[in-house]
């Protein structure tokens, strides 16, 4: 006589607030500060005894089978004072068909996720299959769409298999506004126009994401680059050849731009900008190939953007 049982679960609009939920410890554990949002849940959990080894009558074990729908609405919060997110809606279905692998199907939308550069209107769907002994998980994320820096990023498919040391996927970039890219360096005095398109291969290593080599191309008809102001002047005086380069960049019109990108998990970002164009007042507008190699740390840039734009404080003020 094998025993069994089940429990119903029904939760309506529980306020997502660690304190109110009596889970204050979770704040430190998850390093997440919850500012807003509500959780609803519905479904049941069924458990039963079964004979694990058909030849061994005494090998009785319990197994359980969830069939739960979870719904999170308008969740806003801050993760590790590093990233804010706003208005996340999430629907999760947690099931374990025939006591086999666990399956979590989810749909996520977010108004904004901001680690320093605003990632807006995020949409994604995913299916996670987790082995019953929780030893391995295969997460398939499909149709990720988001708006970033005036353009759009689409990720058709990400397959993340926890058994694989390396997982790779490609992100499609459409119409990234060079004007907004230049504005990230607020103090530098760079104005630039044009739009970038391309595909970046991303490799997920144990120590973090990496872009071994990717390229973006400026859309026709290209655009302009004007590097003026204090930084440009100080560079101009640094040495003669840099001075010449600054002279060209004072008012450079390009019709072709290839941007080679490499990124390492520690944040090191290398941009190889290959412009083809001219400066009307430089050698009376003779065709010029300008190769600008930029080397900086993306994680430091994001941190300085977070500090200067006061991203965390602004979200806190909004919800308190």
């Amino acid at each position: 006589n094998l025993q069994q049982g089940n429990a119903q679960l029904y939760l309506k609009n529980l306020k997502l607030d660690w304190q109110k939920m009596g889970l204050i410890k979770m704040a430190d554990l998850t390093q997440t500060q919850l500012l807003n949002g509500s959780l609803s849940a519905q479904g049941w959990v069924q458990w039963q005894q079964y004979q694990a080894d058909i030849f061994d009558d005494s090998s009785i074990a319990w197994r359980w089978q969830p069939d739960l729908m979870l719904r999170i609405d308008d969740m806003s919060g801050i993760y590790q004072e590093l990233t804010t997110w706003e208005d996340i809606d999430m629907q999760l279905a947690i099931r374990r068909p025939f006591y086999d692998d666990f399956r979590i199907d989810s749909q996520v939308s977010a108004l904004s996720i901001n680690p320093g550069i605003n990632i807006a209107n995020v949409l994604a769907r995913s299916t996670a299959t987790i082995q019953s002994d929780l030893s391995q998980a295969l997460i398939v994320i499909e149709e990720v769409h988001t708006d970033v820096l005036g353009g759009r990023i689409n990720v058709p498919l990400i397959r993340f298999d926890t058994n694989q040391k390396v997982n790779a996927f490609g992100i499609e970039i459409e119409g990234l506004q060079i004007e907004q890219l230049a504005a990230l360096e607020a103090g530098a005095g760079i104005t630039a126009t044009g739009q970038l398109d391309g595909i970046l291969p991303i490799i997920l290593l144990p120590e973090g994401p990496q872009v071994p080599a990717g390229s973006l191309y400026a859309r026709a008809p290209g655009g302009i680059v004007q590097f003026r102001g204090a930084t440009a002047n100080s560079l101009k005086d640094s040495n003669p050849s840099v001075g010449l380069a600054m002279q060209v960049l004072n008012d450079f019109r390009y019709d072709k731009l290839q941007t080679d990108i490499t990124y390492q998990p520690d944040g090191e970002l290398n941009l190889g900008l290959q412009f083809q164009g001219y400066n009307p007042t430089f050698f009376d507008g003779q065709a010029t190939h300008f190769n600008l190699n930029l080397e900086y740390n993306l994680l430091d840039l994001l941190e300085s953007l977070r500090v200067s734009n006061d991203i965390v404080q602004k979200l806190e003020n909004k919800y308190q």
Partner: peptide, 11 residues
């Protein structure tokens, strides 16, 4: 540091 006074005050 070419940063807003507000950021210095906050840190």
């Amino acid at each position: 540091q070419k940063t807003e006074l507000k950021s210095i005050e906050k840190i």
